[in-house]
């Protein structure tokens, strides 16, 4: 599989259809994290998978992927800092990481905005981190392969 070409037409068309759906699914898993199994980590992994799928199907780990990875690295740090900021915000309600907007009720999405925000921060951190990691490994492998080619 050459880097710039990506995969066959079928895979590319299906990816185009699925990309948005996977993103929405990931977001939903994170948003409902306090009610159902899942949360920021699982949601972030799913969101990262959408981007990984796009890179695999359309190719371009080197071109657009590398640009995305730079963005992802900043987003990753932003997600972590956002989590810390939310944790410190808990002090205003009495304790570190205190859930200032309630500890949540079953089946009620809006019952605890603070946990939803924490989940979104984790989604950002995990999604961006995993995607940046994937690009780093892909670039490393390509560099290693092209290096081998040059030796021969």
């Amino acid at each position: 599989m050459s880097d710039q070409q990506g995969m066959s037409l079928i895979v590319r068309v299906v990816t185009r259809w699925l990309f948005g759906l996977i993103l929405v699914f990931g977001l939903a898993v994170a948003l409902f994290g306090h009610l159902t199994p899942g949360g920021g980590f699982a949601g972030g992994t799913i969101v990262a998978c959408a981007f990984v799928l796009a890179i695999l199907a359309f190719g371009g780990a080197r071109g657009p992927g590398a640009t995305f990875a730079r963005w992802a690295s900043s987003l990753d740090a932003t997600g972590a800092l956002a989590f810390l900021a939310l944790a410190i915000l808990g002090y205003t309600a009495g304790a570190f990481l205190h859930q200032w907007a309630g500890k949540g009720e079953a089946f009620t999405l809006g019952s605890t905005p603070s946990i939803v925000l924490l989940n979104l921060a984790i989604l950002l951190k995990v999604g961006a981190g995993l995607f940046a990691g994937f690009i780093a490994v892909a670039l490393f492998e390509q560099t290693a392969e092209s290096g081998k080619g040059a030796d021969a």
Binding site: S74, D76, A77, T78, L81, A87, F96
Partner: peptide
């Protein structure tokens, strides 16, 4: 005692802030 989590928070925040400024 309330401030005890800061022992972890401060260096952790510094670590990610360093990553954020690494290019600019």
């Amino acid at each position: 005692l309330d401030l005890v989590p800061l022992f972890v928070l401060i260096p952790l925040g510094a670590a990610f802030a360093c990553l954020l400024v690494k290019k600019r």
